[in-house]
Computed example of a mutant assay.
Amino acid sequence: MPLVSTAELVSTAAAEHRGVAAFNVITLEHAEAIAAGAEQAGTPAILQISENAVRFHGGGLLAIAAAAAAVARASSAPLALHLDHVVSTGLLYAAADAGFGSAMFDASKLPYEENVRATADAVRWGHERGIWIEAELGRVGGKEGEAPLDAHAPGVRTDPAEAAAYAAATGVDALAVAVGSAHAMTERTAALDHALIARLRDAVPVPLVLHGSSGVPDDEIRAAVAAGMVKIHVGTALNSAFTGAVRSFLANGPGVVDPRKYLAPARDAMAATVAGFLGLLRPAG
């Protein structure tokens, strides 16, 4: 199936009052698992490659992007390709030639006015090339290389009035907001502020994005979608499934040296995790 745009998947999900999940791709097995899980669930999904993943691959975007796109095109599920958490403008500019229809430009570490200027520039660049741009306002902690951040600390969560002004000033197509989740959580214990999500939904004219969803329990995700979240990011949960399956296999077969033997169950475990998350995002009833 041809690649579907993130814009189409997100706008359709918003219109149907459901969520669409975006899963992090690190290896080819991640991409294959996301496609398989989406096919099992009969649901669209987004394959996203972060700047950290690009760095893992030696800084080259084209190879991992081409692999993920090839997997998506071979799938019977509607899949999009998204470039996530881009800080480098050089990497952002590479998205146009690498087949991405969307990117998340992350200027959230900058002071507010600088964030607005940098993001507005990224949006202008993206829209001139037909690329849908997501941004972040507030502080979703747990990013690689950052000190731990309490999701409940004062000033961390996104203010609805500021978010509305930010969306108007930058022209972003979607906005990631801080409502109680955090990146890289390995236990699903996050408690979201659903009243804040509803206030943000009413204040902000673009779809809302929940980062750090691996640490959010099932019922909390369902409630977040019901309150107004649309694009749901999942990364660490796939890595936990992958690593757990590899550890289990090697514990029972310590002499195995063929990586295909343990990568296959690892891929299957990620696919099951993908299907499980996608099952949470259907509209109530």
Rank of each mutant, 00 (worst) to 15 (best):
L3V: 14
A22T: 03
F23S: 00
I26H: 09
H30C: 15
A33V: 12
G42Y: 02
A45C: 11
L47E: 02
Q48I: 08
Q48D: 03
A53W: 01
H57M: 11
I64Q: 06
L81V: 01
H82Q: 00
D84Y: 01
D84A: 02
D84Q: 01
V87P: 00
S88V: 02
A94G: 00
A95L: 10
G99V: 07
G101Y: 03
A107Q: 13
V116G: 13
A118N: 13
D121M: 14
A122T: 06
H127F: 13
R129K: 05
E134R: 02
L137Q: 14
V140F: 12
G141R: 07
G141S: 11
G142A: 08
V156E: 10
D159W: 04
A161Y: 08
A161F: 06
V172F: 05
A174M: 10
A174H: 01
L175P: 12
A178W: 11
G180L: 09
A182G: 03
A190L: 09
A190I: 12
A198N: 02
D202G: 12
A203W: 09
L210P: 00
H211K: 04
S214R: 05
D219Y: 00
D219S: 06
I221H: 06
R222Q: 06
A224D: 02
G228K: 00
A241F: 11
R247C: 01
L250A: 06
V256G: 05
P259V: 12
P259I: 04
D268I: 14
M270W: 03
